[in-house]
Nucleic acid binder design. Structure first.
Lengths: 232, 232
DNA sequence: GAGTGGTCTAGACCACGTG
DNA sequence: ACGTGGTCTAGACCACTCC
């Protein structure tokens, strides 16, 4: 046990919260009192408290003190990538079509563009073990330098397509997950000949000014996908 | 502009990463060099670097230095609560049944229990505007003090049910999202008389020793739910 | 051995909230 | 006025990496 001092202090307080000795809303001893209790300097105590703050255990109010936070019941982290999921990975992709279209009303609203602004549409099919598992459509705003090179597009995810121009760090992303009964043409594309639902995942990417940069909609065969997430 | 010094330094470096002046894999100036560049002390520079590390912009390697990180394309945060979602909130709930059952094989595996360990099953219907929108089943391990008081159970989420005993902080949660065609009995419960898919959300809660504490499965009418997530 | 980040100290001044 | 957290300094020693 040669952990740094600040880790031991954080662990000690964390245990008090986990065990219920400290309950949400309770106040912690002040920094100077914690210094005395653990016989260390203020910066070390503050390091411990910063860790617990990051972990969501506590929060501070300037002039008042530190308090035990309420845990977030309902927060999950999910890693979603249209080419990889927990049941099946996409092992090959077919580029159906790349074209330039005039946006319909839904697209005008979604991408917040003028009705005469043209949009690049990329339609693909994703395969696993030779079977089609998802139909994928991307709508990208045309920007100088956007690659329309087949080999670059074929296996790219939406962030990868857009990151050709913009730093990936400043992008904001949104995701929507819902289910749908497939239309006839989608059934044909995905070789669906029985009653089967689609899991639909919409991704939207924004630049640092909250301007939409692209929209992707992926229609997964319901028997080929399960999304997973976890706390933390 | 009377921001703290460490914020300005962080902002300055963040901008270099966002603009592409610094690219993933590039190394940053050393702490002492940053001290000279920004004419400040080492602890202040370290505070800036700690922030950028938390934000996922950079990472450090002891003995070597700081480097620009690769952004996480595919990480999303989703707030899920079986009683609230982006389309419709549950405005009332009906408790169908609470009973004690012997676990089937699926449940034995999922909750990692012995086959003769009994399990509490809670079955509910969720309504919005008087219409049934979801069918919900929870499986809880029996523990002393578990409340089986109807009024407490009726509107509780899975974490709330289990948090009666255990500190909510130390719990780990898992979520699985998929789609299914409803069975006949589910169709009746949810008043489904047309072709309609279900969005199924499974939640599993673990205590701090990774021991499963409960499983919840919620079957949402596909036209009544859309899950949403976002980066960060 | 020189340079790097990781930990830690013992001070300081400030803005804020409460009596 | 006093106690609180927020910011900042100028040092120190350590473990690690690389040459």
């Amino acid at each position: 046990m040669k952990n740094p001092v600040y880790m031991n202090i954080a662990e000690s307080i964390r245990n008090k919260v986990n065990s219920g000795t400290l309950k949400p809303g309770d106040d912690l001893p002040s920094e100077v009192n914690l210094c005395k209790e653990y016989e260390t300097s203020r910066m070390t105590v503050r390091k411990s408290l910063a860790i617990l703050t990051n972990e969501g255990y506590i929060y501070s109010v300037p002039g008042k003190g530190y308090f035990v936070a309420k845990p977030e019941y309902n927060k999950y982290t999910i890693y979603y990538d249209e080419m990889h999921n927990s049941i099946n990975n996409v092992d090959s992709a077919k580029l159906l079509e790349v074209d330039i279209i005039m946006p319909d009303e839904k697209l005008i609203n979604s991408l917040q563009i003028h009705q005469n602004k043209k949009v690049i549409r990329i339609r693909r099919l994703f395969y696993t073990d030779g079977e089609p598992m998802a139909y994928d459509v991307k709508y990208l705003l045309y920007h100088k330098g956007v690659p329309i090179v087949e080999q670059e597009i074929k296996h790219a995810t939406l962030p990868e397509m857009i990151a050709k121009n913009i730093s990936l760090f400043s992008m904001k992303k949104e995701i929507k997950i819902y289910t749908e009964i497939p239309q006839e043409k989608t059934k044909k594309l995905l070789h669906i000949d029985k009653e089967l639902a689609l899991l639909v995942v919409e991704q939207k990417l924004y630049d640092s000014n909250d301007k939409p940069m692209g929209l992707g909609i992926t229609y997964f065969r319901g028997d080929y996908i399960k999304l997973q997430g976890m706390s933390q």
